[in-house]
């Protein structure tokens, strides 16, 4: 019986996950080589050459990785700090409501919030003007569509931190860190030692796969960088979509080359992470 259920699960997985993905990937691959596509003329390597000789994709990869990394590191740090320092306060329903509310807000709405609050014509700029801190809109610091992607990072943090707080509160409870901390204290450890040598290592070890997955998720984020990013460089999804929708129809295949490369990199990274995890689990 259990075997049969396993089979059904496998079939469902193939039909709903593997098959559509394989077909879409195959379509993108054929398009990237010019085999299909209304204005393409047959097999060619020119789109691949074009993408490899231009630095656009490479720059976008690095740019996206740095933003995603900063976003994840800051969110995780903030969440850890809040959980370790203020976990008792989460009994207060108003505070927990404020902390968890962003979980219900979609990325695109969050991006608009950030824009409305931090743009040079936004809420804080207007407030600063009313308080006579600035005289013109241009004097307000550039926080959206800016060179340093500050708007994007702020939004990522607002989206990720509540999730990680929730996660770490559970880990804290499940892994009985409170008891372990008391034990350490009894053995003479100070607060700093408890945090650095007991609480943090356990929480990070338990959550590292999720941290990496969230990094990958941010790497491929679309709406937030679309609204808050600049025109160049652009984050990966924005760049790929731009290439796929471009005015020059003869170059659409370049967008598919980028999509294929991006998928291959992300798939390899995911497989690598999970195979390592499996190895480690088997080792225990």
């Amino acid at each position: 019986m259990k075997n049969k259920e396993k089979h059904i699960g496998f079939i469902l997985f193939v039909v709903f996950a593997v098959l559509p993905f394989t077909l879409a990937f195959g379509y993108a691959l054929l398009y990237s080589f010019g085999v299909i596509g209304i204005v393409n003329e047959g097999f060619t390597l020119k789109f691949w050459k074009e993408v490899f000789t231009s630095s656009t994709l490479g720059v976008s990869f690095i740019y996206s990785s740095v933003i995603a990394l900063i976003g994840v590191i800051l969110s995780v740090s903030l969440a850890l700090w809040i959980v370790l320092k203020y976990r008792e306060s989460f009994g207060n329903k108003y505070l927990s409501f404020i902390i968890y509310m962003p979980l219900a807000v979609p990325g695109i709405v969050s991006a608009f919030f950030t824009y409305q609050l931090f743009a040079q014509s936004g809420f804080f700029a207007r407030l600063s003007y009313q308080l006579n801190w600035i005289e013109t809109a241009q004097q307000f610091p550039d926080l959206v569509n800016d060179n340093w992607a500050i708007g994007i990072i702020i939004t990522f943090i607002s989206l990720l931190t509540p999730f990680f707080i929730l996660l770490y509160l559970n880990i804290y409870k499940d892994e009985r860190i409170e008891e372990l901390s008391q034990l350490s204290r009894a053995l003479g450890a100070n607060k700093k030692q408890i945090a650095l040598k007991v609480s943090l290592p356990i929480m990070l070890k338990k959550s590292w796969v999720l941290i990496v997955l969230y990094f990958i998720f941010l790497l491929g984020a679309y709406e937030v960088p679309l609204i808050l990013g600049q025109e160049s460089p652009q984050m990966l999804s924005v760049l790929i979509l731009r290439e796929l929708k471009q005015f020059d129809l003869t170059k659409i295949s370049e967008g598919y080359v980028m999509a294929v490369l991006y998928t291959v990199v992300i798939m390899s990274a995911t497989v690598f992470i999970f195979s390592r995890k499996k190895l480690r689990n088997n080792a225990y």
């Binding site: 014509s121 550039d142 569509n145 800016d146 060179n147 679309l226 600049q230 025109e231």
Partner: peptide, 15 residues
């Protein structure tokens, strides 16, 4: 923005 970036869409310019 000192020409460091340009708006993606014209609708933004209206705003």
């Amino acid at each position: 923005k000192e020409g460091q970036t340009f708006p993606k869409e014209h609708s933004k310019m209206d705003q």
